[in-house]
Simulated assay, not measured.
Amino acid sequence: MDLELRHLRVVCAIEDAGSLTRAATALSMSQPALSAQLRRIETMLGGALFDRRQAGVVPTGFGELVLARARAILPGVDGLLADASRVTRHLDAPHRVRVGSVGAPLLGHLLLAIRASLPGAEVTARCGPCPAPLLEDLAAGRLEAAVLGDHPGQELSPPDGVELRPLVTAPVFALLPSAHPLAAREEVELSRLVEEDWAAPRPGSDRTREYWSSAFSLTGRRPRIPYEAEGRQLIEIVRAGLAVSLCQATFIEVPGVTVRPLAGDPLWYRHVLAWCADGPLAAHGDEIMRKVGAGYLAGCASSPVYARWRERHPRSAQLAR
């Protein structure tokens, strides 16, 4: 039996966990199976790597030597594998474009722009609630492009090999039951809205709830949030008259739900496109941004409330240049 990279990863995982039991859980193995594998690795190397103690395991002197060499080797190997994977994907499937998206109004426009820029491309899409996993998939080569979003003070950071292109920063609006008294107003004060029952996304890695809370705190009130929901479920709770919420400015009103601007525009959302820097879209970035931007502006016109807001604020929510 020859020593393999996976054996070095196992040894590092054991040191990181500090015990065979915790390491087995992290590696999705049983503890007896991990113990047996460690014994085989120690036999191959010719010495004990860890002292087994009641509180866990501690590297022996020999183990420290092996671990130091393993931790020097593995990052270089991982980098080589990642680079090779990106190159082979680009060479073997230059027109395969996998797109991810958060719940934002740009996905359809991006798909159309990709099809126009790469007419022969096989284009697929999948959606998720948070930008962080989509960024990870872009960095790992599991996606070629994504629609992302963030908030002021929570701006996304691009991983190596990923290009982020902000498109526009738009206001966040109030989402109300149509029968709610505040729905009759041209705009709604957040300080008044915070007194209502709320439907809101669960706290998560997209940090939307955290951003909303920062705005709530300025009113001196904490809203009651009996309903945690997203997407269609959140809209249905509002439509039923059970709660109020917030939405993107491009949200198109449906029967039973009314959209209104927030007075003073205290909340904003930045729409961002992303793609692999060495992927098939890199050479078409400016063209894609223009086409998606044009689609976004057409969507603004389809939302009467947002269209009126833009007329009153001609210098706000402009497309990035």
Rank of each mutant, 00 (worst) to 15 (best):
A274M: 05
I252S: 13
A249I: 05
A263E: 12
A282N: 07
H271Q: 07
A263W: 04
G256E: 05
G285F: 04
L234K: 04
V292N: 03
K291R: 15
Y269D: 08
I237F: 03
H271T: 05
A283E: 15
E253C: 06
R270Q: 09
V272D: 05
G256F: 01
W268I: 02
R260E: 02
G241P: 10
K291M: 14
P280L: 13
V257I: 10
D278G: 11
P266N: 08
G293H: 03
Q233L: 13
L281Y: 07
H284D: 11
E287N: 00
V254S: 11
C247A: 13
A240S: 15
D278V: 03
H284G: 04
I252W: 00
R290E: 11
A249C: 13
R232W: 07
V254K: 13
P266F: 06
Q233V: 14
P261F: 00
V254Q: 13
Q248A: 13
A274C: 06
C247I: 08
L267F: 06
E287C: 00
W275H: 14
Q248M: 09
G256N: 01
P280K: 06
I252R: 15
L234D: 06
I235K: 00
G279V: 11
L246I: 04
T250E: 14
G241N: 09
E253V: 02
G285P: 11
P266C: 05
V238W: 04
L262D: 09
I288C: 06
D265M: 03
Y269R: 12
D286L: 04
W268D: 00
G285D: 07
S245K: 09
D265P: 00
A240Q: 07
C247L: 01
A277R: 15
T258W: 06
Q248V: 00
P266M: 07
L262S: 10
V272F: 01
G256H: 01
P261L: 04
G264W: 10
A274F: 00
W268T: 10
F251R: 15
H271M: 09
V259H: 02
R239L: 03
L281G: 06
V238Q: 03
R270N: 10
A243V: 08
L267A: 14
A282M: 05
C247W: 02
E236A: 10
E236N: 10
G279K: 09
G241F: 09
L242N: 07
W275S: 04
R290C: 03
G285C: 11
R260T: 10
L281T: 13
I288F: 03
P266W: 07
A249G: 11
I237H: 01
R260Y: 04
G279Y: 11
A277V: 07
A240K: 07
I252H: 13
G241R: 11
I252C: 13
